[in-house]
Write a protein that binds this DNA or RNA. Structure first.
Lengths: 138, 138
DNA sequence: CTTTGTGCAAATTCTTTGCACCAAA
DNA sequence: TTTGGTGCAAAGAATTTGCACAAAG
């Protein structure tokens, strides 16, 4: 089965109709697990898909998030970032270079949702920040 | 001691020179622990301080964050929000009304910073989201 | 004086909206 | 042919920047 067909399947699992654009965005997310911004996705796909509009990238990612196929991250106050890995894991952002990395070695209990009588808590995001090793030398 | 003098003292603890504007912003944050946005702070202070500019509110909060006097929150992707409570506590944002609330009844171990050989982790933010009771009825 | 802080306006960046056209069912 | 998807351009909102003036030491 070729990658595009696999991606079609994956989208259908989330009740997302696979268009050419949606498949391209999902494939990009699967192959580039760097928590890309809208702009990064758009600029990466544009060369091979010159008619693609940024509006479509926005629409597509909103849809993916709504259907639960990707996670929208708030860790970066400059831009929205997207993560195709929807499993429970934390993120780290470097205050110097701005890159976002996964943090997997944290206790799963971190992701347990607290019970509250004031709110219905549905999700949690754990965001660490600091300096990454590449930036530390500079 | 009057409130303004107390605030001066508090600012000095963080090596922040207390100007009229800085004192007003800090006093607002202390009396309105609702994680206000820049705009909310500006609009609240403007009536009694008509010459205050939004640029100064931006500058002031950047300085407060840099000096560690307030926490900048990333939980709200629409605007930056600020919290004068710099102790370890989590936040909840309502996906419907957008209000941000404190969550204190979470285990202190959540705020322990993981050790990594790739990054120097300096801080953590724990962000819950869902629906608050006031919005639930609607 | 010299440095630091403030305020205005303009510029920039990110995101959303309105609408026309295209594609699929 | 009707519905949903895409793309363009314009609008909107949040934040940043440049620069002139004011305040403090």
């Amino acid at each position: 089965m070729n990658p595009t067909l696999q991606t079609h399947h994956y989208l259908l699992k989330f009740s997302i109709k696979p268009s050419v654009q949606r498949t391209a965005v999902m494939e990009y997310l699967m192959n580039n697990r760097t928590h890309p911004t809208i702009d990064e996705i758009y600029l990466a796909l544009n060369p091979t898909m010159p008619t693609l509009s940024k509006t479509t990238v926005y629409n597509t990612l909103d849809l993916f998030v709504e259907k639960g196929a990707v996670q929208a991250l708030v860790i970066d106050d400059k831009n929205a970032r997207y993560d195709v890995d929807i499993s429970s894991h934390a993120h780290f952002i470097c205050n110097s270079c701005g890159k976002v990395h996964d943090i997997f070695n944290v206790s799963p209990t971190l992701f347990q949702l607290p019970v509250s009588d004031k709110f219905t808590i549905q999700s949690v995001e754990i965001s660490y920040s600091g300096i990454c090793n590449s930036c530390k030398g500079n």
